[in-house]
Amino acid sequence: NEEPLPEGWEIRYTREGVRYFVDHNTRTTTFKDPRNGKS
């Protein structure tokens, strides 16, 4: 039961299956979860 991502964020996966987060607001990507700060 995960809380929803902030507005404008999306979860994607690399070809290796590593989860990362896309911030469409700033057009950046990060491996850090914007909901809780954990990677």
Rank of each mutant, 00 (worst) to 15 (best):
R15P: 12
T28N: 08
R35F: 04
S39L: 14
E3V: 11
V18I: 14
E7F: 12
R27Y: 08
R12E: 04
P6L: 04
P6T: 03
I11K: 06
D23I: 02
S39K: 12
K38A: 15
P4R: 09
G37N: 13
R27C: 15
R27H: 14
R15N: 10
R19M: 13
W9D: 00
T29P: 06
E7D: 13
N25F: 08
E7S: 13
E7N: 12
T26P: 00
P6R: 06
K32H: 14
P34L: 01
E7L: 12
R12L: 09
T26W: 03
W9A: 00
F31Q: 07
E3Y: 09
E16V: 09
T30K: 03
E7A: 14
K32R: 12
D23E: 05
N25A: 08
N1R: 12
K38E: 15
K38N: 14
K32W: 13
T26E: 05
E10S: 10
E2R: 09
T30S: 09
V22F: 15
K32Q: 14
H24S: 08
S39C: 15
R35M: 02
F21S: 00
T28K: 11
R27G: 15
P4T: 08
S39V: 15
N1L: 13
K38Q: 14
F21G: 00
Y13Q: 05
D33M: 01
N1G: 13
S39W: 14
G37M: 09
T29H: 13
H24W: 12
P34N: 00
R12T: 04
R15H: 11
R19T: 08
V22W: 12
R19Y: 05
T26N: 09
E3A: 12
N1S: 13
T30Q: 08
W9V: 02
G8H: 06
D33R: 02
R19N: 04
N25G: 07
W9L: 01
G37D: 14
V18G: 06
T26M: 06
F31P: 05
P4V: 07
R12K: 12
F31M: 12
W9G: 00
N25L: 09
F21V: 00
G37W: 10
G17E: 03
E3C: 15
I11E: 08
E3I: 12
E3L: 12
E2Y: 11
